[in-house]
C-alpha cells in the first residue's frame, strides 16, 4: 500500500477498508452513534409508554431541565476537545447561584449580580487553567481539588442555611414557558448554536481542536495553546455557573448541595456524544445529544415503570460502551497509520 503516493491508497483487503470507513465516519461525525441511539431510544420509549413519551406534558418534563444539564455538557465537551477535563462543574453549578442570591439580597441590581456571579465562575476557571498549566499537572486532579474547594466555599458563604431568592427579580427571563419549553431552552439553544459556530467556523475553534488534537503541532505552528486552554477552562466554568443559576431561578432557592454528581453526568454526556477522551475529536451537537440522551433515559425509565434506580446503570453501561468503541477506533487508526 505504500507505493502509491499521489492518491489515497486503495485498500488491499476488506478489513482495514471497513475500519477506515468507520474511522472516517467517526472523525467527521463523532455524534452520529449517539444520535442513532437517541432516535432508537425515543422510538422504544414511545412504543412502550403507549404514546405518552412524546406528549406535550412529558416533553415539558424532559426539556424543562435539559438546558441545565445541557449547558454544563456543552462546556465540558469544548474543554475536552481542547484536551482538558473539568470535574469542578458540579460545584460551580452551586457556587454561582449562591453568590448571585447573596448579592441580590445585599441589594445589588440583577444585572450586576449576574455579572459578578459569572466573574466568580471565570475566576474558578482561571485558577483551574493556570494551576493545571503552570505546574503541568493533569486537569483531572486540579479540578478534582476545585470540586471540593468550590463546594466548600458555597456552603461557607451560605452560612449553612439556604437563602431565598428575592421575588422582584426578572427570573422569568429563564423560567417563563413558551409552548412546551421554558425560555431557558431558547438561551440554551442560542448559546449552543453560537458555540457550535465558534468551534466549526472561527479560527479560535480551529485552534481549540488543534490544541487537543496534536499539542506539539499546535505549538510549533504558533498557536497560543495556553491561552486557548485557559479560554476553554473559563468558558466551561461560566457555562456551569449559568446553568446552576437557571436551575435556582426555577427552584426559588439555592441549595448548597446543588449539582452534586453533575460533573460525571456532564463528562458522560460528552463522551456518549462522541467526544474523545484524549481531545481533538467532538462536536457541540454531540454534547447536546449526550445530554438529551441522559434526560430521555431518566424520563423514559420512569414512564415505562422501570425502577428508576436503573438510571445510573443505563448511563454507566452507555458510557463504557462509548469509551470502548472510542478505544477500538483509536487502535484502528494506529493500525491504518502503520499500514499506509
Amino acid at each position: 500500500m505504500s507505493d502509491t503516493t499521489d492518491t489515497t491508497a486503495p485498500p488491499a483487503t476488506r478489513r482495514p477498508d471497513r475500519g477506515r470507513r468507520l474511522l472516517k465516519v467517526y472523525l467527521e461525525k463523532p455524534e452520529l452513534a449517539g444520535l442513532v441511539l437517541l432516535v432508537a431510544l425515543v422510538a422504544f420509549f414511545q412504543l412502550r409508554s403507549d404514546g405518552v413519551f412524546l406528549s406535550e406534558a412529558n416533553l415539558r418534563g424532559i426539556l424543562g431541565i435539559l438546558p441545565e444539564v445541557g449547558l454544563v455538557a456543552v462546556g465540558v465537551t469544548i474543554l475536552m476537545i481542547a484536551g482538558e477535563f473539568d470535574l469542578s462543574v458540579g460545584s460551580v453549578f452551586a457556587l454561582m447561584p449562591m453568590s448571585v442570591t447573596l448579592l441580590l439580597n445585599e441589594g445589588v441590581p440583577f444585572a450586576g449580580a449576574m455579572l459578578l456571579g459569572l466573574g466568580v465562575c471565570a475566576c474558578v476557571g482561571v485558577v483551574n487553567g493556570v494551576v493545571t498549566m503552570r505546574f503541568a499537572i493533569p486537569s483531572f486532579i486540579t479540578t478534582l481539588g476545585m470540586l471540593f474547594v468550590a463546594r466548600s466555599l458555597t456552603v461557607v458563604i451560605s452560612g449553612g442555611f439556604p437563602p431565598l431568592l428575592p421575588l422582584d427579580i426578572p427570573s422569568w427571563l429563564f423560567t417563563q414557558f413558551v409552548g412546551p419549553v421554558r425560555l431557558s431552552m431558547l438561551w440554551f439553544v442560542g448559546i449552543a448554536v453560537l458555540l457550535g459556530l465558534m468551534l466549526t467556523r472561527t479560527n479560535l475553534g480551529n485552534w481549540i481542536r488543534a490544541t487537543g488534537g496534536n499539542l506539539e503541532a499546535a505549538k510549533s505552528m504558533g498557536i497560543p495553546v495556553q491561552r486557548v486552554k485557559l479560554f476553554c477552562f473559563v468558558l466551561c466554568s461560566m457555562l456551569a455557573g449559568l446553568a446552576g443559576t437557571i436551575q435556582v431561578f426555577r427552584l426559588g432557592s439555592p441549595l448548597p448541595s446543588l449539582g452534586e454528581g453533575l460533573e460525571l453526568q456532564a463528562v458522560a454526556a460528552a463522551v456518549i456524544g462522541g467526544t474523545a477522551l484524549a481531545g481533538g475529536i467532538g462536536t457541540v451537537l454531540g454534547g447536546v445529544i449526550g445530554a438529551v440522551l441522559l434526560r430521555v433515559i431518566d424520563n423514559g425509565l420512569v414512564l415505562t415503570r422501570v425502577d428508576a434506580n436503573w438510571f445510573k446503570f443505563a448511563v454507566g453501561t452507555l458510557l463504557i460502551l462509548a469509551v470502548v468503541s472510542n478505544a477500538w477506533l483509536r487502535k484502528t487508526a494506529r493500525r491504518l497509520k502503520v499500514e499506509t
Binding site: 472523525l27 480551529n206 485552534w207 481542536r209 488543534a210 488534537g213 496534536n214 506539539e216 503541532a217 499546535a218 510549533s220 505552528m221 504558533g222 498557536i223 481533538g280 475529536i281 487508526a333
Partner: peptide, 16 residues
C-alpha cells in the same frame, strides 16, 4: 508530525 490528524488538509495548511 506537525499535522493534526483529526483535521482536514485545508485546516491543517492554515493552522494559526
Amino acid at each position: 508530525n506537525s499535522m493534526v490528524p483529526t483535521m482536514s488538509i485545508a485546516r491543517n495548511l492554515f493552522i494559526g
